[in-house]
């Protein structure tokens, strides 16, 4: 059997510039930091990014100038601040951004995951979100129509089928069977909508461990193309049951992201200045820092 366990640089090399990638983080939780750093190091350009609620990962990619089109439900870095790079790119019109909502992005992934070409929704009506989509480049993805049975009016949303979906999970086996602990936001729909699916796992476990609680398997191995094993792969964002967010580093990031020049300094120090995620973890403070952030077993953070 082909081994699915691959390095992040190996996987990112297979992603052409111009791809549509879907990212599985939410604000400051389970962000694909190791993947995003490598996309930046390998300078994968003109990406389309889709995400339910964006966070640090998408802010990094947009700030690095690699995203041409963003399809999102909104987002921020929670109490640490706004997604400065995303917001600035919108203000300077250097990014084509299509605003949706948490549920409408989730529904678009769900349609993709079910092999449907569209899905009806009752959100978005009477809002500027819908008006702007209809007036802009997103117009071909939304349409008002009626139910053929009841006549009720709906917004129809085109399915989303990203070229590659990325999800960060707590555990996976070598075949890609994944278990996610804690709330999963839109991960299942987003993962299964992808034409290709890559997971980053904090821990790789024997299949026998998965077999002990198969009801917790959210993504089955046969759907997964590659498993990247990267402990602390989401830092400075949090992974429930594994580690807390690094509040100091998130504050440092927000301070740099406020200004384009300072953001470049951040990228030079923490992305271009690190050969891989292990070097980045050293830069964050190494084992001493990681030990401080490691979750305690009752609270999970």
């Amino acid at each position: 059997m082909v081994d699915k366990v691959k390095s992040v640089s190996e996987v990112v090399r297979t992603i052409p510039s111009g791809s549509h990638i879907a990212l599985g983080g939410f604000a400051i939780a389970r962000n694909l930091i190791a993947v995003v750093h490598e996309l930046i190091r390998q300078q994968k350009r003109d990406l389309t990014v889709s995400q339910g609620v964006v966070g640090l990962e998408t802010d990094l990619l947009v700030g690095a100038g690699l995203v041409g089109r963003l399809i999102m439900g909104g987002g921020s870095l929670d109490r640490f601040g706004p997604a400065h790079c995303v917001n600035r790119a919108r203000e300077t019109k250097s990014l084509q951004c299509e605003d949706y909502t948490s549920l409408s992005v989730c529904f678009r992934y769900l349609a993709g995951a079910l092999g449907l070409s569209f899905i009806p929704i009752k959100s978005l009506f009477a809002s500027e979100i819908l008006e702007r989509l209809e007036a802009g480049p997103g117009a071909s993805d939304v349409k008002r129509s009626r139910c053929p049975f009841t006549g009720e009016e709906y917004v129809l949303l085109r399915a989303l089928t990203p070229d590659v979906s990325f999800v960060h999970v707590q555990i996976a086996d070598r075949d890609g069977n994944c278990q996610i602990n804690g709330p999963r936001w839109g991960n299942e729909e987003q993962a299964k909508a992808g034409r290709r699916l890559v997971v980053v796992a904090e821990e790789i476990v024997p299949t026998e461990f998965i077999q002990r609680s198969p009801e917790r398997t959210i993504i089955p191995g046969h759907r997964v193309e590659a498993v990247i094993h990267q402990p602390f792969g989401a830092l400075p964002t949090t992974v429930f049951g594994c580690y807390d967010y690094d509040a100091d580093h998130l504050r440092l990031y927000v301070k740099h992201a406020e200004e384009p020049e300072r953001f470049k300094e951040y990228l030079n120090a923490f992305v271009f200045g690190c050969r891989d995620h292990w070097e980045y973890l050293e830069k964050l403070g190494g084992l001493r820092r990681l030990e401080k952030l490691r979750a305690e077993p009752i609270s999970g953070y």
Partner: peptide
Amino acid sequence: VGLPDSRSFYRATCWSGFLDVMG
């Protein structure tokens, strides 16, 4: 600090996702 912070979902009776809660 936010909805996905582990502190906000401590001792919940259900963990699911958007499709369940919002759908």
